[in-house]
Design a protein around this nucleic acid. Structure first.
Length: 823
RNA sequence: GCCGAAGUGGCGGAAUUGGCAGACGCACUUGACUCAAAAUCAAGCGAUCUCUGAUUGUGCCGGUUCGAGUCCGGCCUUCGGCACCA
């Protein structure tokens, strides 16, 4: 008897697959399926999160191939980024060398896992062949007016020595290193994602294959607010202050105005007045606060009077203008009208500074009085103290007041988003250079397409915490202007790596194209990605950016798709002992160790069996042992009968009860595995169904020993191997061969279960009395309700419960249960 | 504070349409094999009690229903996201 030896069979089959170009993608047929796992940053080492996401994708890819789909299942590298550059500073290894070495190391591990990637389509975002097209896409955005440079207050991470996009600030810290983010005024490149805010929000409707929580997170991030922009006139100079409000119905309740510290009018209104020094001190103090402090809800709301006032357009009233620490320059217009009676923040602020409070919305049943209020009234109601609008329900009041403002051009309906434009400049070396030059004569000039890529020079000096090496590289810096051939200076910022990852799934469809980013026809054959799999941490970042890119590319006529990812599976984390695996906790288990000890098939099986894919999974060494035991158990079964059943593929006619039972168990498992993979992605229950089938086969084996029906056993073993093959591809291949089959198990057609085998002559039903289980009955299959009921009532045990009682009602569910209600 | 998800044995989890709660695996107990152990095969395994049976049990309280882990109302806890967004 041969032992199960994954250390031998796994490399054997990996070699076979590789030598036979096994996972090369077919032409996209009518039934195409694009399975994609988020490509990794090449850190050099796979972790369990990687192993999990690749295992999920691989089961799908293999299963769908067997189901007759042409499957695209590629892999690549999100290869630009800070860690490589930081390593360069510390270890004196060039980021390119380090990155490519890491890629090789990780690819080796992925191959050791037996994942069915088409390596011919591999892309690395740091390769000039790839970032040429990243730069080309930047120019496309630029030409379409979607890339622009402006001076703005931006988030700066001191530790990473670069700016960050809004999406990359988490709880006031850098997403990568958690360092507190500070605000700097810098001139930077942005992509106009806000132009697409409405479509990004609207098209979430199309994403029914996404988890609801991800859609909700994106919806919240885009943060649409409908309201009005209203202009107040400054007393004295006649200037205008526009404010955004979602409550135009409360306009008559305005008793003051607050500006953000950064608002340009603050300086204008106070310059040369007696209040100048005091206001400036306040502004400076406010601006020095970190983002964390400033956005904390606990921070006290403070403000200061500017000395100026403005006029409420709706009633001509003069109200004071203040500067407040709670008004954000980046949202709305950076100015807020104060309606203390109907906004809790305004209420607290007004109490603190003794500003007047005026009720303009009152509940329908009683009149709201200021003296009785200890908090703002924010619910619906009826307008009061609002001149001709008195008596209107507030919803109607909103429309009426906005319409009235529109007529006199002092305000208008307005939609505001929380989403800001995407800041894409990075003051670092290891990224795609922004293809722009600055000419003294021509100004900002895009690099011409035929001189792309703007290549990263390799001979650069990395310094600790300093500016980007590109800015100090004379050869890179100095160039000629594409417009006038005069001397010009290159942009030295590189692009946010999230740009590179926003279009890689397009490139996989045509990875070697050196004429175009990708060919439209090849792209349309595969895109959209049918199933995308990755971590929830990208719920906003990568997934929002990719949706934005797809829409721009669609508008540019490059793709038919309006959304890139039809279905999204947000896979859970892999923990150990209830905590995230981390070096500091000492609870890290690496895929390498598992492969070495049990083989890739065991590791894959465990990671899929331990929990449904979207849930967090707790790594259990015992659980892995259990899966290893299971595979050995399958191995022994096949090993015992392989010789006896090889070639036994005759027709199965009427068979004895033991054989019928085995066939039923196998076909039942096949049905469940098929449905669990296809409809539900519940690999854990699919695997448990295979386990049950194996247990049934053991039952048959223990009963019959060597006296088995070889044709029935042949069917059982072949079906078991086919079912198991997507989960344990090496073992599947080996057993398939040992059962005497030609070709690869992975090129077989996924078997269909036989419904007639599932039919039973007799079924067990449950008999309840008053909803309580009082007995079980084996009855012929296919009886109707009346027949079931009378059989149930004739059963000795049931008679004891119903004897002498009146049967009020009886419910019979065919083939399942009878419930007798007695009194 | 707002939004979302989840609470089921000692543990991971199952129950897909309202119909036997706990599939499958782990752990544990027992039997077989063995000189013995490991491995393997087999059986048992929610709790309580007056133990061939009954009662009870899916975070808590209530409801709908012949019947609720599943549906409805109200809470509690945990996790995740957003958070002065005007």
């Amino acid at each position: 008897m041969a032992e199960y030896n994954p250390g031998v069979i796994e490399p054997k089959w990996q070699k076979y697959w590789e030598e036979n170009d096994f996972y090369k993608t077919d032409e996209a047929g009518k039934k195409k399926y694009y399975v994609l796992e988020m490509f990794p940053y090449p850190s050099g080492k796979l972790h369990m999160g990687h192993m999990r996401v690749y295992s999920i994708g691989d089961v799908l890819a293999r299963f769908l191939t067997m189901r007759g789909y042409s499957v695209l299942h590629p892999m690549g590298w999100d290869a630009f980024g800070l860690p490589a550059e930081n390593a360069a500073i510390e270890n004196k290894v060039h980021p390119a060398d380090g990155t490519y070495a890491n890629i090789e190391a990780m690819k080796k591990q992925q191959k050791a896992l037996g994942i069915s990637y088409d390596w011919d389509r591999e892309v690395a975002t740091c390769s000039p062949d790839y970032y040429k097209w990243t730069q080309w896409l930047f120019l496309l955005f630029y030409k379409r007016g979607l890339a622009y440079k402006k001076k703005a207050s931006v988030n700066w991470c001191v530790k990473c020595a670069t700016v960050l996009a809004n999406e990359q600030v988490e709880n006031g810290g850098c997403w990568r290193c958690s360092e507190d983010v500070v605000v700097k005024d810098l001139e930077q490149w942005f992509l106009r994602i806000t132009d697409y805010a409405e479509r990004l929000l609207d098209d979430l409707k199309l994403l029914s294959g996404w988890p609801e929580r991800v859609r909700t997170m994106q919806e919240n991030w885009i943060g649409k607010s409908e309201g009005a922009e209203i202009e107040f006139t400054i007393v004295g100079n006649g200037g205008k202050i526009p404010v955004f409000t979602t409550r135009p119905d409360t306009l008559f309740g305005v008793t003051y105005m607050v500006l953000a510290a950064e608002h340009p009018l603050v300086d204008e209104l106070t310059r040369g007045t007696e209040r100048e020094a005091e206001v400036r001190a306040f502004v400076d103090k406010t601006r020095k606060l970190t983002e964390v402090d400033r956005s904390s809800t606990e921070m006290e709301k403070v403000g200061i009077f500017t000395g100026a006032s403005c006029v409420n357009p709706v009633n001509g009233e003069e109200v004071p203008i203040l500067v407040g620490n709670y008004v954000l320059m980046g949202y709305g217009t950076g100015a807020v009208m104060g309606v203390p009676a109907h906004d809790q923040r305004d209420f607290e602020f007004a109490k603190k500074y003794n500003l007047p409070i005026r009720v303009v919305i009152t509940p329908k049943d009683h009149l709201l009085k200021v003296e009785e209020m200890d908090e703002a009234y924010v619910d619906d109601g009826v307008l009061v103290n609002s001149a001709e609008f008195d008596g209107l329900p507030n919803e109607e009041g909103m429309r009426a007041i906005t319409a009235s403002l529109e007529q006199t051009d002092r305000g208008r309906a307005k939609v505001t988003y929380r989403l800001r434009d995407w800041l894409i400049s990075r003051q670092r070396y290891w990224g795609a250079p922004i293809p722009i030059v600055y000419c003294a004569k021509c100004g900002t000039v895009p690099v011409e397409e035929d001189s792309l890529p703007v290549e990263l020079p390799k001979d650069v000096v990395f310094k600790q915490g300093g500016q980007s090496p590109l800015a100090a590289h004379e050869g890179f810096l100095h160039t000629v202007c594409p417009a006038c051939d005069g001397p010009a200076r290159r942009e030295t910022d590189t692009m946010d790596t999230f740009i590179c990852s926003s279009w890689y799934y397009f490139r996989y469809t045509d990875p070697h194209n050196d004429e175009q980013a990708f060919n439209r026809e090849k792209n349309d054959a595969w895109i959209p990605v049918d199933q995308y799999i990755g971590g929830i941490e990208h719920a906003i970042l990568h997934l929002l950016y990719s949706r934005f890119f797809t829409k721009v590319l669609h508008d540019a006529g490059m793709t038919a798709a309006v959304e890139p990812f039809t279905r999204l599976l947000a896979q859970g984390m892999v923990n150990k002992d209830g905590a995230k695996m981390s070096k500091s906790k000492g609870n890290v288990v690496s895929p390498d160790e598992i492969i070495a000890k049990y083989g890739a098939d065991t590791g894959r099986l465990f990671i899929l069996f331990a929990a449904p894919p979207e849930r967090d999974l707790d790594w259990s060494d015992r659980g892995v042992e259990g899966c290893y035991r299971f595979l050995k158990r399958v191995w022994r079964l096949v090993d015992r009968y392989a010789g006896a059943v090889a070639g036994q593929n005759g027709e199965i006619g009427a068979v004895e009860p033991a054989e019928r039972e085995l066939r039923r168990a196998i076909h039942l498992a096949l049905k469940k595995v098929t449905e669990d993979i296809e409809d539900r992605f519940n690999f854990n229950t699919a695997i448990s169904a295979v386990m049950e089938a194996v247990n049934a086969a053991y039952g048959y084996m223990n009963e019959k020993e060597d006296d088995i029906d070889t044709v029935v056993m042949a069917e059982a073993l072949n079906l078991l191997v086919l079912m198991l093959a997507p989960f344990a591809p090496h073992l599947g291949e080996e057993m398939w061969q040992r059962l005497g089959n030609a070709d690869s198990v992975h090129q077989q057609v996924w078997p269909a279960y036989d419904p007639s085998v599932l039919l039973q002559d007799e079924v067990e039903i449950v008999v309840q009395v008053n909803g309580k289980v009082r007995g079980r009955l084996t009855i012929p299959a296919g009886l109707n309700s009346e027949e079931m009921q009378s059989l149930a009532m004739g059963d000795q045990r049931i008679v004891e419960f119903i004897d002498g009682k009146q049967i009020v009602k009886a419910i019979a569910v065919p083939g399942k249960l009878v419930n007798l209600v007695v009194r």
